[in-house]
């Protein structure tokens, strides 16, 4: 995102780690919002959705980066979408085989991974321009960063909305549940809260750097 002005090319570790903080798909790039908001009402759903998306992202990045030389430019988007749709179908049947209950809870949102802009975005912006190894690390990092963000949201919403985390009761019997947190409105509010937190950190960092620059100028 325009930060790579230095001449040293990013290492494999950098490609992997950027998805967690510097270019976190949810908090920084604001991509793939629909599943983030829709299935983050409990931590368990959020984790399952995050892992499913990470798997699709990883596999599609690998395939797309290895076929990138054979795909004509005009039909690349359609090709990418078809590759992604294939892996999503696999994940759909996989989840159905592992846990029918989970499949019911996630509902149509497993199929809707196809149109998650994060996956198509990474395919277009990264996998279609880089080698297999780098794309694999990028997909894995972005996928896990996405999972982390979903867990942040799902955790907060479950703690306030049901008074539990991963199904374990935290506050005892007399906890008054905040019903609004597990309803759609709560999703918007929680995400807004996390974005505020991120903005705050970012502003604090920028201010510190400004201060340092000023001090250097004085010296």
């Amino acid at each position: 995102m325009g930060h790579n002005t230095n001449s040293i090319p990013p290492t494999g570790t950098d490609e992997f780690l950027k998805g967690f903080w510097k270019q976190n798909p949810v908090f920084v790039q604001v991509l793939g919002m629909c599943p983030v908001l829709a299935v983050s009402n409990t931590a368990e759903n959020a984790l399952a959705m995050g892992l499913a998306t990470a798997f699709v992202l990883l596999m599609s990045n690998i395939v797309i980066s290895s076929i990138r030389r054979f795909v004509p430019k005009q039909v690349r988007i359609v090709t990418f979408i078809l590759v992604i749709a294939t892996f999503v179908t696999i994940v759909d049947y996989l989840i159905q085989a592992i846990s029918l209950e989970l499949h019911k809870a996630l509902g149509a949102f497993i199929s809707l991974i196809v149109v998650n802009c994060l996956i198509l975005g990474r395919a277009e912006a990264f996998a279609s321009k880089n080698g297999v190894y780098r794309s694999m690390l990028d997909g894995l990092g972005m996928g896990l960063g996405f999972t982390l963000a979903l867990l942040c949201l799902g955790g907060v919403r479950e703690i306030f909305g049901y008074g539990s985390l991963f199904g374990f009761q935290l506050f005892g019997e007399r906890y008054q549940e905040w019903v609004v947190m597990v309803l759609p409105a709560g999703g918007f509010f929680t995400l807004a809260g996390w974005l505020l937190l991120f903005n705050w950190f970012e502003q604090a960092r920028v201010r510190k750097e400004d201060l340092k620059l000023k001090e250097e100028a004085v010296v």
Binding site: V30, F188, F189, A192
Partner: peptide, 21 residues
Amino acid sequence: DIVKGTAITLMLAGLLSMCFM
């Protein structure tokens, strides 16, 4: 400054969503 951009938009969306409930 801190709420400008996506954060305030999401809060508005939350309020709208509550209205639609």
